[in-house]
Design a protein around this nucleic acid. Structure first.
Length: 289
DNA sequence: AAACTCTACAACCGCCATTAT
DNA sequence: TATAATGGCGGTTGTAGAGTT
């Protein structure tokens, strides 16, 4: 009994992804969408476990990922949010368009944690200097407490949206993590990094990543010209998709990324908050304003 | 030039929550 | 209600490349 361990199949590739694998995965997801990660590698003809595919897509291949150096504004925001939320990287990443939780986590672990440690005096616990990570989780008298809501994961929300942004979750529609930038996430300018300023409670809780009906813009450059390399179990293959795709005459393939008015934060519910958590969130709001 | 150390980051692992049956 | 399957998250590891000795 119990869970079937992931990635137990022998013969699966591990380690770094090749360009071909990236191309196969990207192409498959462009056509079939995200989800069904366990089936995906079989269908796409990848010798990877589903979990690995998901990670690769979310952290590296998604078209809305912003690559490059983290700006000073972003860095400040990460520090602020980390002070408030702790190591809840997905939540932090949700406030930084185009950045992934993994990227922020790495950035924190390699740069910011040291930077922060350099600023704050080491805290002694039981007479000894606290080791690695202590400064992150320890609550000094000056830092606001890390907010930890009861539900560590946000599920189901019944939140009235402003001005026609109705919740339109449908049966069978994959739920979207409230913290993760979605493919239909509207890209914002760096100037918007001060977006946390001036939120009221609801805005703070449900900082609504605007879900316009942006289409997912997929660059198909890497696919163009590829030969019929891979065929999945269901007969899908890159070149057949590419050739059959009505959009393929353009440089970019536009896929519909969302219905437009879905709430990215559809999974959050204020009902799940405990009374004292509401108070903590007020503190959060005042801190950020 | 070789050996060693450090840094950055992609990838993996294990656990947990949610969903499906 | 119980159990299995799936998806998601945070912690950790592996490793390539840069820098230093």
């Amino acid at each position: 009994m119990g869970r079937r361990p992931c990635c137990v199949e022998e013969g699966l590739n591990r380690g770094s992804w090749s360009a071909i694998e990236d191309m196969i995965l990207t192409s498959y997801i462009n056509l079939h969408g995200e989800g069904k990660w366990r089936e995906l590698p079989k269908r796409a003809g990848l010798k990877r476990c589903g979990k690995s595919c998901r990670l690769r897509w979310l952290n590296y291949l998604r078209p809305d990922i912003k690559r490059g150096n983290i700006s000073k504004d972003e860095e400040d925001l990460i520090i602020k949010l980390h002070r408030l939320l702790g190591n809840r990287w997905s939540l932090i990443a949700g406030r930084l368009p185009g950045r992934t939780d993994n990227e922020i986590k790495n950035y924190w672990n390699t740069k910011l944690s040291k930077k922060i440690q350099g600023q704050t005096p080491k805290i002694r616990i039981n007479g000894s200097v606290e080791k690695k990570g202590a400064s992150e989780s320890s609550i000094s008298s000056e830092t606001p407490p890390v907010i930890r809501t009861k539900a560590s994961r946000c599920t189901r929300v019944f939140l009235p949206r402003k001005e026609g942004n109705e919740i339109t979750k449908k049966n069978g529609e994959s739920s979207r993590d409230c913290s993760r930038p979605s493919s239909s996430f509207q890209q914002v300018d760096d100037d918007s990094l001060d977006m946390l300023v001036g939120f009221d409670m609801n805005e703070l809780l449900f900082m609504s990543d605007d879900l316009n009906s942006n289409c997912l813009q997929i660059c198909s450059d890497g696919i163009r010209g590829s030969s019929n390399l891979v065929t999945g179990e269901d007969g899908w293959n890159i070149s057949s998709w590419y050739l059959d795709d009505p959009f393929s005459t353009d440089t970019d393939v536009m896929l519909q990324g969302g219905s437009g008015n879905e709430a990215i934060l559809e999974n959050c519910s204020i009902d799940t908050l405990q009374p004292d958590e509401a108070f903590e969130l007020k503190m959060l709001a005042s801190f950020l304003s």
